[in-house]
Design a binder for these strands. Structure first.
Lengths: 353, 353
DNA sequence: CGATTCGATCGAATCGATTCGAGTATGCTT
DNA sequence: AAGCATACTCGAATCGATTCGATCGAATCG
């Protein structure tokens, strides 16, 4: 006996004594079908062990799969460790699930995956979400060429893609002004990665100019507007506490030692605070630290509140999800920029005299 | 002008003056095509703005989409907050990405999604992974009926599904014996959810018997074998630090107050330790706490090490990923049970005299 | 030189459904 | 009883590729 052919809707229809079009209607409910007929079809299906129309064939005909691709950051594992990314996924998912769509997690770094980008673009997708990606992410071109509708979240910033963003400029500016008003003069920035080829360490003007992450660019620009273009920047390789700690350690060994640090993310800020503790520096007495994001830091810092720029993480996800829904429905959604709130916590104070 | 029809491979073939079969070969490389011909096809494609074969049509013909569905726990958001789940996803993804497959995150709780399970089973999938699910998860029946190959990770435990599991029994037994040997007699268990309808609070025998999560069942059974069937159990609603804290608070208000707690997960253990701190109890002097999983707790607990059962989180994911690959290749992989290691940390000690 | 093989290409069948337009029987209206 | 709307069903076209077997000319072999 050879491999038996799969049971198809046509088999079911034949057994029920109806045409396959009628059998299809019995399943989809897209047209009038007499109840007895429907029962006969369902009975025939049960006898043959038919579990319903094949999703692939249906998708091909309808041109819709219910699968929405997501590229989130460069490395998936790092994204999972970042509450902001997770909140984004959750928000998108919350909007899309009721519409019958689910998220396909695509490995952000196709280079690491050892696959050419076009190999990755082979999934049957209704839409794509690029979150926190490089403006030149290799998948973007392929997705656009295939005319798969796509949205960006905080970058990539490209004219073809509608984007949901937050007020990086305003938030960062307030953070910098806050430190300035407290009297700090030696302020350093611990930044997120500037480009997709991750490096770590001090940022010189050439590197600064090469920044391809829109988010990082904006946050740097705002700080430079307030503190001047020569502000000292240390770059991290990823948005992780460990990375913040490395950057912090580097800063505290240098001289003049900064009296305040602007971290471009709360996770980095927490890392900086840890590095400070290890270097014997008290926060905020010896060092002020400002973060960005407004995550729940109680797990990391105990009860002390981080001074930070709160962004609407979930709302961002919900908006992105609704944008995807719009795109799939054939409309082009307008760009959205969500406001942020600067919140003073317990990690900033005037510098020691 | 009406909506123009999409450019298809046939259009490209016509323009290049070849048959569509040849054009297909030019793209897939599945047969010999003369280089000049191939160039002509590619040129025609470029002129028409054709970005390559439609993934859906290709998938239909080949019977393969590269999409692997994952149901991870009951709520996706909780899963993201659990390092063990995240490690699992990462491990699976690491195995599947090189094979050209990506993970489709399915909302675990289809009830919450407000969709009948069959609605959810409509995605074009090559395979499914059920991780930490209820034995009776509604999707399982549908997936099996459709003959989508599936693997289980630590439950559901069903004869139809190959499973990768860890040694829950051995690990939990060692944890219980450790406390017993230290001299503890008032030992309580803080358990993971027993069923999909989440409750919280003390577990009576009826509830105990109704447990549908294989993982939880095994871990309870091992502890009961060592400590007797009357051991006190408090159930949590999810694997979260907050939940552990609630359960701990409940235990410390009761009398006799337990001198030791076996938590079925490290996150719960951390919650219990927090509750202890709030109740003015010192760990391990006034209270011993054992966890399960072996996550990096340094973010939560400072430098003190949790006494816990370490499980190979990543290895579990890798094995699951390889099982999926086997299934997709048409083989049926053997079940795997991975060993665990009991590790004594700083959170257990003999009870106060 | 005839037979064989190989490389390149093509035509047609296939994957498994959905959907559109048409056809038929039935019931209702006047 | 003629006219007409309604409910149901069917056949055929369609979605966009891949793949199998056949064909044909050119190169290789004995």
């Amino acid at each position: 006996m050879g491999r038996q052919r799969r049971v198809t809707l046509a088999d079911v229809a034949a057994r029920a004594g109806v045409s396959s079009s009628t059998a299809s209607l019995a399943y989809s409910g897209a047209g009038p079908v007499a109840e007895p007929t429907r029962q006969r079809v369902l009975a025939a299906a049960a006898e043959l062990g038919y579990a319903g129309p094949d999703p692939l064939a249906r998708s091909l005909r309808q041109g819709r799969t219910g699968v929405v691709g997501v590229v989130i950051g460069e490395r998936l594992l790092d994204a999972f460790r970042d509450p902001v990314s997770v909140a984004l996924l959750d928000g998108i998912s919350a909007e899309l699930t009721p519409l019958g769509s689910a998220l396909l997690l695509l490995p952000g770094d196709t280079r690491a995956a050892g696959q050419p980008p076009e190999r990755v673009a082979l999934y049957p997708l209704d839409a794509m979400v690029f979150a926190g990606c490089d403006d030149e992410h290799p998948l973007i071109a392929h997705v656009l060429a295939r005319r798969v509708p796509a949205v960006a979240v905080e970058g990539p910033r490209r004219p073809e893609l509608p984007i949901v963003d937050i007020d990086h400029l305003g938030g960062s500016r307030q953070a910098a002004e806050h430190l300035l008003q407290l009297g700090h003069r030696e302020i350093a920035v611990v930044s997120l990665p500037l480009t997709a080829d991750t490096r770590r360490g001090p940022v010189d003007p050439a590197r600064r100019a090469a920044c391809t992450f829109a988010l990082c660019r904006d946050r740097l620009r705002a700080v430079e507007e307030v503190l001047g273009p020569t502000v000292r920047i240390v770059e991290t390789a990823s948005n992780l506490v460990e990375e913040g700690e490395l950057a912090g350690a580097e800063l505290f060994e240098s001289s003049p030692r900064p009296t305040a640090v602007i971290a471009q993310a709360d996770l980095l800020a927490i890392g900086v605070i840890r590095a400070a503790a290890k270097a014997g520096l008290r926060v905020p007495e010896d060092l002020s630290v400002v973060g960005f994001d407004g995550i729940d830091s109680s797990g990391w810092l105990g009860s002390e509140q981080l001074t930070t720029v709160e962004q609407p993480m979930y709302e961002k996800g919900h908006v992105a999800g609704r944008m995807v829904a719009e795109l799939v429905a054939g409309r082009r959604p307008a760009d959205v920029t969500l406001p942020v709130t600067f919140r003073v916590g317990a990690t900033t104070a005037p510098p020691a005299a």
